[in-house]
Design a protein around this nucleic acid. Sequence first.
RNA 1: GGCCCCUUCGUCUAGCGGUUAGGACGUCGCCCUUUCACGGCGAAAGCACGGGUUCGAUUCCCGUAGGGGUCACCA
Length: 474
Amino acid sequence: MSASNAFAGKVVTRFAPSPTGFLHIGGARTALFNWLFARHHGGEFHLRIEDTDRARSTEPAIAAILDGMTWLNLNWDGEVVYQFSRAGRHAEVAHQLLASGHAYRCYATPDELTALREEQRAAKQPMRYDGHWRDRSDRPNDVPYVIRLKAPRDGAVTLHDKVQGAVTVNNTELDDFVLLRSDGTPTYMLAVVVDDHDMGVTHVIRGDDHLNNAFRQLALIRALNWEEPIYAHIPLIHGSDGAKLSKRHGALGVDAYRDEMGLLPEAVENYLLRLGWGHGDDEIISRDEATGWFELAGVGRSPSRFDIKKLENLNGHYLRAADDGRLAALITARAAAALGRELTADDQALLQRTMPELKKRASNLNELAASSLFYLRSRPIPMDEGAAKLLASATPGLLDRIRARFAAQDDWSAAALEQVARDMATSEGAKLGQIAQPLRAAVTGSAQSPGLFEVLEVLGRQEVLGRIDDVLAG
RNA sequence: GGCCCCUUCGUCUAGCGGUUAGGACGUCGCCCUUUCACGGCGAAAGCACGGGUUCGAUUCCCGUAGGGGUCACCA
């Protein structure tokens, strides 16, 4: 029975992170691929928390994983499985293996193992357990032991991986790894195999840092005489320097992409999807399209580098496509923090109304919030460097003359106001920009803003005249 | 170091024996324009190297180089 055979039954995938840190971007992509594959085939996608390492697993990490999955809208089927809760079952399988002669007790102490590794390192030999207790019948009393798998020593194993293709490893490369620790708790290797089997997982899609583990797990599965899942080891995401993504690359939790970088989940998803996978020339891919198109055969075998620029560009695209009310809500907290006050319902409405123009000018929520502030500020508004320059170099008396024309203006629509400015430019023999730029600076406190006359209309006559007065007074 | 994997523009990728090697991000230029964006148009930029196989290799095979992953009573 080869794992490369076409799969006929119901697809079951899982994402199985260990809660020893945040949900990072690589894990998120693994989760996404598992999710897409399951949904594409109308199967199930499960979430399993691999918390067998009691010392390193933490509650905050678990919360961060669930939070990240939820934010990315990667909904899982059924209850979350906590691996540690299944320790009894894992031990049971280990002892079953012991009874069937596929495993044995090893009484080697940590010191002995360290010494063995030192020896092997010195002799430039591969560092592997030597199987000292593999075939011995003597049993020291009152000495702690671990249970090791009696792994095959001859021949080779070929894994038919859906992404990596046929990969063959000699059994001499594998040693008798530990199944059950001396304290009776299971190792990762045992727990994964037992849980995947018990959960009915049909396709194991994970990072290719697990490729070597697959051979050990296969040995275990065969000793158990269980059905082998289909494997797909996807390449890791690397930093811009080509090495595995880590802290020094700014490998952050997905919460940082949401909170600190102000990205939209659909942008992160689209970016992650295109990392290592492609569908012709398509770049902007909806979730529905992705679900319809995704297949493991399309996953490349080479690692890809994380490119924040492309992610930001994609985010800009999704920002422009996003609902205005949603965006207004998303930047509320950021705007409130910058303003030092809560936003009112009127503020919210104003943000939503101005959003179509604001969102064209931002590539993330931070920029979007910052660009909206001038609408919300109370007088006198601060002038940034660019605005100060514009005002300093404006023609003398310009603002006074603009103010006079605006003060006499009845129709406060953008179109009418633009006409006022154009008339003034004509009569003064100036270019529109010479008038518009200083005016923009006075009214927005910046050299850049959405269309000036729309801004004037939104701000209203009183506020505009007031802001001009503030500058004239200052 | 052993084993395993990878190698198309700077980056993500399309390509699955014959193409002017396509798209996207980024970069540069132009257009639009009251600014910044958005949008539109255009440019520079790539098959790591060496052998084969073949009428013909980016594509198939073998080396070399480079990169990566992994070698725990961690997962």
